[in-house]
Amino acid sequence: MPNRKNTTLDIEQRLLIDAIYYKYHFDFRGYAQASLKRRLQAALIHFGCKTISQLQDRVLHERETFPALLEYLTVQVSEMFRDPSYFRALREQVVPLLRTYPSLKIWVAGCSAGEEVYSLAILLREEGLLERSLIYATDINPAALKKGEAGVYDIARMPASTENHAQSGARSSLSEHYSAAYGRVVFDKSLRKHMVFSDHSLATDSVFSEVQLVSCRNVLIYFDRELQDRALGLFKEALCRKGFLGLGAKESLLFSSHAASFDDFVLKDCIYQKKAVL
């Protein structure tokens, strides 16, 4: 006999996700349900709700509830130069090929609060490419996008970020790119002028530009197989001929319907190159 409690929880969760989609047009229906369940359990504690149905009632009738819930439904865990070997591989093996383009467009999908965006901008500056680059930074969380646009982070995170930066093959000190005061760091406006932060959903939106590099790391792991394929299809469509795709350390093209469209480029760091002829 099925566990009646779990069945009820599953039904409540599906109804909440549907309610969010129809009222707010945020589509979490293709997200991994086990991961959503864990985040919703934390949200129940925060909102003081005993059941997901109680939370759904508040989401539908209290305007301020959904933006707060969105902080739980979207994963906002990142750091500067996270997984330094990925950035070193970009620097040493991808950048030499990016130099051949007269201008560069890069898409950071699921950018969270912008740490990876600033990391890429600093790397491009160090390699002499920033002035001809534009980085599109997209996410579904408006609060995260606002943080990214501000470029303000907790100074306590900088020692780890500085170490990551050094391990990425840095050509400068990370502190050269920000100013510090009152327990916060503010990254240079000269970096921000090469960034466009914008709302974009991999579940519902379309491609908006041709780019030479897509970096979408530690996002697909929260999607089910169908939504992963949709996102990878968007990346394939956005990438120019022989453009590059970077994924997270636990992500792969291996079981995707789009795998045949890419060649392994730096497999250990999950960097792929779109084939010249598809």
Rank of each mutant, 00 (worst) to 15 (best):
F28G: 01
T51G: 08
M195D: 09
R241K: 01
L254D: 11
R171Y: 07
D224Y: 02
Y21W: 11
L60Y: 11
A68E: 14
G148Q: 08
V77G: 02
F28P: 06
G246F: 02
L191I: 09
Y86Q: 15
Y118W: 15
F265S: 04
T8L: 15
M195S: 03
E115S: 12
F244M: 02
Q41F: 08
L90G: 03
D264T: 00
N218R: 05
H194Y: 07
A181F: 05
G183T: 04
M80L: 15
E149D: 06
K268Q: 14
Q33C: 01
Y24V: 03
K274S: 00
L16E: 05
H61R: 12
K105Q: 10
T204Q: 09
A144P: 03
K242N: 11
L232Q: 13
E163A: 05
P67E: 11
A249R: 13
G48N: 15
L69H: 06
L70G: 03
S206G: 15
V211W: 08
N164E: 12
H177S: 13
I221Q: 02
R132Q: 06
R241Q: 12
A181E: 00
R39A: 01
A109Y: 11
R217K: 08
S201V: 03
H177V: 04
L120T: 11
L134V: 08
L245D: 01
T162W: 09
L213N: 06
L174F: 15
I11D: 02
S172G: 10
M158V: 06
I140V: 09
R99M: 03
G248F: 09
V185N: 10
A32W: 02
L267T: 07
D263V: 00
L202S: 03
A166F: 13
R217V: 07
L90H: 04
V185Y: 10
R125H: 09
F223W: 05
W107L: 14
R171Q: 08
H200Y: 07
Y21L: 10
C111K: 14
G110F: 02
K236D: 15
D139H: 00
F66Q: 08
E115A: 15
G183S: 08
V75W: 00
D139E: 00
D263K: 07
D27P: 08
V117A: 05
R192L: 12
F187M: 11
S78C: 05
Y118E: 09
H258L: 14
A249Y: 12
M195N: 08
W107K: 13
A137M: 06
F47G: 06
V117R: 05
L70Y: 03
L97S: 10
L239P: 02
G248A: 13
Q93T: 00
T65N: 05
T204V: 05
A89C: 04
R217W: 09
H200T: 15
Q76F: 04
L129E: 02
D224F: 10
S256V: 10
